[in-house]
Nucleic acid binder design. Structure first.
Lengths: 372, 372
DNA sequence: TTGAAAGCGCTAACAC
DNA sequence: GTGTTAGCGCTTTCAA
């Protein structure tokens, strides 16, 4: 079979004329081309041992590598050295604008360390998470960063106890032997509650996330803590639980709140998306924000600033969180298993006041409006 | 060294008592535990050959696998079979909300095929792209999806010609032997131009992307094509080039337009982000949108709908694009190299009219306002 | 400074 | 239905 297209000339050289036609050249091919033993080639190509090789030989090896288009076979090296130079990243939904920056942060640190990352999206499904982790482990990942962890995440705990470095980011598990990086929510939720209280709100509802999520649990706990301190109305009727951090769920919860008849003048949502959904429903019911109700979110995703009204929320730094998680991970990877200590970093989070919060209208409480 | 913590009991069993202390159990360990040859274990664990093993033996093997916490060593299998079950994904900026859905689409198809994906972010830097591709190749990826391709992307072309299945998504290279999935921009840009023309605009400026980007080139070409057909003013003075798809660049280009003094009543941006930046500058210069200028974008990212004014733009479906790209890729992976044919799919894109476009105010052209 | 050889854990061809 | 064997491409110890 003859090939006469110009692009065949250099790049796929080995496919046509290499010593072992049709397959990727190996160290042996390069060695044969240069006339040395393949272990010499291996040494010449490894920065740690390259100095042991004569300049002249090394130069010829480099030339042969270029000519044959040799590429390192990481699978073979992994088998030999037990080091895959890869980590795994697991996110609950890559479509959520919170996780792009987290991944970017991780990626930037990994590449500094010469590692690459496998990515997996769980779709908020714990079974997918388990499968993903198992596939990743079979692939020999040397560390794992999980952004989808539940508070009771047996798989995550198991991985940690099996000795694979792991760190949860954005979320964390109850088991505190698993390293985590998350946000210092207590003060930031406190700022929100105090802000609302100073504005004159006393009946502040809360749209929580599922109680199996650490972020939901801690934000709710912080709400409870501060509501009490600020002498606002403490009542379980003011709390409603969503099943996921999605606009639709925020809408559903707001409907539920409205239907229940509890009076409230403000609603704090555990997350921006939830706040958006709530805002829509509130407005649809004739409640204007912030005139009739104040609404707050959490995360400060890019859209928060553009919403109408622009959302008062809590700003976090997911890029930094990703970097922090990766730094912990690589520190652990470099340590002997016995030396590793779980670390828990709490990144700052700060309130940003925009236009979705204001004093309640004439101090009057909102009851359950008739539907529509 | 004694370990007395409760969680040591099951999950890290092999670390304490396994036949080969301190390391992951292998097929041999499982075999020894069951009393069969390790190749029997290999067969029992491979769905394709499991039926050849007696139910009873297979059951004992499963039990031992669970007990020892055996995990398949993909690196070893890869070395042996030359199939890594891994693909690579390369994006220009994972922080951009366009790429989350693309990755999710790819990921959903890959996992159906039992593949996992390596992720890489180039930061719009061609050198990083090259390094990433090279690392991925060394890892034995069986296919590659690139969302960061330049029109003249030698590395991408080289990969294609080397025989690794590759498909560009969102962007494409000029070399049409590289499969691609992108959007049918001609008609959608046409809709935008006609919409503007019908509104009465005759001087429509265009903020392009870098001409080395396929998306920029094709959107600009479509603009030129339709501007002419619609009998609007054709002039290179109306075209300005950004260096990247970023708000800041849109702002810079709008400033440039204003400073140049060319009259225009509408500006089409090659991308939503560019449009946002332009909108800001225009407003800062006292030009109200859509009263004084109309502005359009491209992509319809989530924020477009929330911008003020809500942006008239072109809607694309990145999730679908990701899936389409992955489908082409896996079809190719399953084919013998000689059988592979480059495919080019053009997904529909449709105009969505919102509030950033309207008739030009009293048909009067806008000149260069004094700065401020 | 370089060569020789062993072996990482697995699959698959072959034997029984 | 199961055991034996070779070898994927590499790193690394040991010799020379």
């Amino acid at each position: 079979m003859q090939m006469d297209r110009a692009e065949g000339e250099r790049k796929d050289f080995w496919q046509l004329t290499g010593p072992t036609k049709g397959k990727r050249p190996t160290l042996k091919d390069v060695a044969a081309h240069v006339g040395v033993h393949f272990s010499t080639v291996s040494r010449a190509l490894d920065p740690a041992t390259a100095h042991r090789i004569t300049d002249e030989v090394r130069a010829r090896i480099q030339a042969a590598v270029a000519e044959l288009n040799y590429r390192h076979n990481v699978a073979a090296a992994t088998l030999r050295t037990h080091s895959s130079k890869t980590i795994g990243i697991i996110v609950p939904d890559i479509t959520n604008s919170l996780f792009g920056p987290i991944i970017k942060g991780i990626d930037s640190i990994s590449s500094e360390h010469g590692y690459v990352a496998l990515i997996g999206d769980t779709d908020n499904n714990p079974e997918k998470e388990e499968k993903l982790i198992s596939t990743f482990l079979a692939r020999g990942i040397e560390g794992l960063i999980v952004a989808s962890a539940l508070r009771e995440d047996e798989v995550v705990s198991a991985v940690a106890h099996d000795g694979t470095p792991i760190v949860t980011v954005n979320s964390h598990v109850d088991d505190d032997s698993v390293s985590s990086v998350s946000y210092n929510v207590r003060p930031s939720i406190g700022a929100l509650v105090k802000h609302l209280a100073e504005l004159g709100h006393r009946r502040i509802a809360f749209i929580s996330g599922p109680s199996s999520w650490s972020t939901a649990e801690e934000r709710l706990a912080a709400y409870r803590y501060w509501i009490d301190r600020v002498k606002a109305v403490v009542s379980d009727d003011l709390i409603v639980y969503s099943n996921e951090y999605r606009e639709e769920e925020g809408a559903r919860c707001a409907e539920e709140l409205l239907r229940s008849g509890v009076p409230f003048t403000a609603v704090m949502a555990a997350n921006d998306l939830l706040a958006f959904g709530a805002l829509n429903v509130l407005q649809r019911h004739g409640l204007e924000c912030p005139r009739d109700v104040s609404v707050t979110g959490f995360n400060d995703i890019p859209m928060a600033e553009r919403w109408s009204p622009p959302l008062t929320t809590v700003k976090v730094d997911p890029l930094r969180a990703g970097k922090a998680a990766a730094e912990i991970l690589f520190a652990d990877i470099k340590l002997a298993p016995e030396e590793r200590q779980p670390k828990h970093v709490l990144l700052p989070a700060s309130m940003v006041v925009r236009h979705s919060t204001a004093a309640p209208s004439s101090g009057q409480l909102r009851g359950a409006p008739t539907n529509g």
